[in-house]
Each structure stands twice: as C-alpha cells, then as structure tokens.
Design a protein around this nucleic acid. Structure first.
Lengths: 202, 202
DNA sequence: ACCTGAACACCGTTCAAGT
DNA sequence: ACCTGAACACCGTTCAAGT
C-alpha cells in the first residue's frame, strides 16, 4: 500500500522511542517500512526535514496556556519538558531541529513565549530574545536531565533513589524557571530608556 | 616524525576553521596528517574525546575574571562568546562537547560562574544550576548568531549592513545577559517563595 | 505519481601484523 | 610504543528506470 508522510513520522517516532536517536537513520527507517532508502526522498527532501516532522509530532501536546504571563511561561515550559522526557533522546532531537530551524512547533512555542514576555513589559525588539532565552534553558536543562536519566536506566537499578532524583529534578527545573521569570519581570529596570505603559494583549 | 596529541588538535582546529564541523572527520584528519585512520585511535579513544580536546583549545582564552559577581559573569560570557565566534562552527562544536561532558574547560567555566552565583546570594544547592542556565544562554545565543553570520557570509556580500548587524548582536547579547543577571540578583526573593513547589512528592 | 536498484562518496572503529 | 592495512558494518543522497 501507499506510503504517506504520516507513516514515515510514525515509524520514525517508534524507532526513536525504542532504540534512540543514533539508530534513527534513513536506511533503518526504510528497512522498517519495507521500502528502498530512495523512497523516503519522495516524501521528505532530506533527513533534517524528516527529523523536523518528528520534532513537531513530539511537541504536539505543547499548547498555548491561559492565565497571566507568569502562568503562561510556567505552563508552556512544564509541558515542553514533559513532552521531551516522554521520548527517548527527545530533548536532543528537538534541540537539533530547533537549531536547524526545522520545527514549526518550536516557532509557535517561541511566539507564545514572546507574547508572554511582551505582556511582562519586555520591549517589542527584545521579547523574542527573552523567549528564546527561556527555550535555551528548557532544552539545555532537559537534555542534561534526560542523558543522566537514560544513563542511570542503562546501569544498575537504583532501589528507590530514582523517584527521589526525579522529584529533585522537578524542583531544580522550577528554580531555574523562576530565575528567568524574575529576570523577565525586572525588565523595566533593565531597559530604563524605553519606559512605557505596561499594556498587554496580543 | 612522531605524532603527538597536540599535532592532532592543531590539525583538527585547522580543518574546523577552514572547512567547518561537517568536514572534521577522523578520516579527513588522518589524511591531512598523512597517517592511516587507525593511528588516531592510539592518541584518542574516540572522536568525542578528540572533539573535546578541540573544544578545550578553543576555550583556552576564556579565563576567570576579577571584580564583583556581576563583572565576573559579564566578563566570562563576553570572552566565551568571542572565543566561539572566532572559529567556524565554534558554538556548535563546544555545545556538543559540553553536552557530552567532554570539555574540561567548560567544567572550569561553569565552576567560575557557580562561585559568582554563590556570591550573588544563590543557595549552594542551586548555584551550579544558575551557572548552567547562563551557559545554556551563551551557547544557544551564539550558535544561533553564528549560523546566521555564516549563512550571510556564504550568500551575497552585504555592503555595510554587516557591521550594523554585528553591533546589534552585541547589544542583544547584552540584553539577555542582563536579564539573567537580574534573575540571579533577585534570588533571595526567590528562595523565600520556595513554597511554590508543592509537587506530587513520594 | 510513486518507488526500486544500484551506485557514489563517504563514515567511525577495530585489530592483527609490522617496526 | 606507535603505526599500517584491511576489513567490518554501516551512512545520506541521487537518479535512471520501472509501474
């Protein structure tokens, strides 16, 4: 039967979850789908584009949040971290796709965070940078956390430390996020030059 | 004549500067040194280790800074960005080595930033996280900046915009850094609000 | 329109054997 | 101690040719 983009992304996500990003190759994916490697290039121009589609699939559950700007940032970042942690090497894959500019979902997320930063009083010319700074943090923190988690899982089974470590990671994640939110909230003091009324809405 | 680690790192850095990270392969490096690929594995256990040594070479000029904690953070981050920008794909290579835990220089830099954060009043248990948050920002910002710079350089020559764009990048970099420094400076307020983390404990 | 077959131009790593 | 030669087990991408 016919191959569709969706099938490729489904199969690619399965390989990622079961074997990790190192085994997510075009040839391996083709083998899994019982097609020749060349067939994939009818549907995607190259591997980067395919990985971008996988990233977008992983990020599907990360939707815009309601509430004030603080709630929106915390909400999006929490969901983002959860989405990354629920796929093997998820943080690494999304980081790469984000850096390569191949994830529409990340563009959407940055836009959401930008509008939150704007609501916090960050000047229009700097709101996206504030948003990207938050994203760098979430991706960096989670990639680090995930590599440790996966390394531990591969080694000896820790009797009960695991849940303690997981809890700890959540608290640590929150601390860094609060640090960033405090920085964003202090922005009026920062760009004292462009002081204007704290209007919201987007 | 005999091959030494230094020779490998020198030649690898030259390939990086002249052709970029995609061309920095073990086979290409061996060819450039007129040895067989296997020879490199006498000196380095694997490619990651070699790349870590290149990262450390790039980061050599990033030394500890004097002054109060704010000056030290700004100083280290400025020198870090400069070091990354002065080698083709420098930010990408150092990011990868940092994530893989293969750069001693990055460990040193994080330690310096941690002590600055501690001086700012960040609790001992969170100082390193604050430091890593700063590093995620510098690496993310600079990788982004560098990929745009290199893309522009490959395309049409911009008559005079280049310097304007470069200046702009410096100002933008400073803004994000100030945001983080404000967040770190506001940490006393933060720890007080630590009751914020009523997670599902177990 | 969609896919195969086969090729092109590579990779990282290992390891017996040489000096 | 240090390196060669050759192999092992792969890659991403292209493209004429088939259906």
């Amino acid at each position: 039967m016919q191959l569709h983009k969706r099938d490729l992304v489904d199969a690619a996500t399965a390989i990622l979850d079961n074997y990790g990003i190192a085994d997510l190759t075009m040839r391996r994916l083709a083998r899994e789908l019982n097609v020749s490697p060349g067939a994939l290039y009818w549907h995607f121009a190259n591997k980067q584009e395919l990985l971008g589609a996988v990233a977008d699939r992983i990020l599907q559950p990360v939707a815009d949040e309601p509430g004030d700007w603080r709630d929106r940032i915390v909400g999006v970042c929490t969901r983002l971290r959860d989405a990354l942690l629920s796929h093997t090497d998820g943080a690494e894959l999304v980081s790469a796709s984000f850096a390569a500019g191949q994830s529409e979902a990340m563009t959407r997320i940055v836009a959401g965070l930008s509008s939150a930063a704007a609501d916090a009083g960050v000047a229009a010319g700097h709101a996206e940078l504030a948003a990207r700074t938050v994203v760098y943090y979430v991706l960096g923190f989670t990639a680090d956390e995930q590599s440790r988690l996966q390394w531990d899982a591969a080694g000896a089974e820790l009797p009960d430390e695991q849940s303690a470590l997981t809890d700890d990671a959540g608290e640590r994640f929150g601390f860094g996020l609060d640090l960033l939110i405090n920085g964003i909230g202090a922005t009026e003091t920062l760009s004292a030059a462009a002081a204007y009324s704290p209007r919201s809405r987007r």
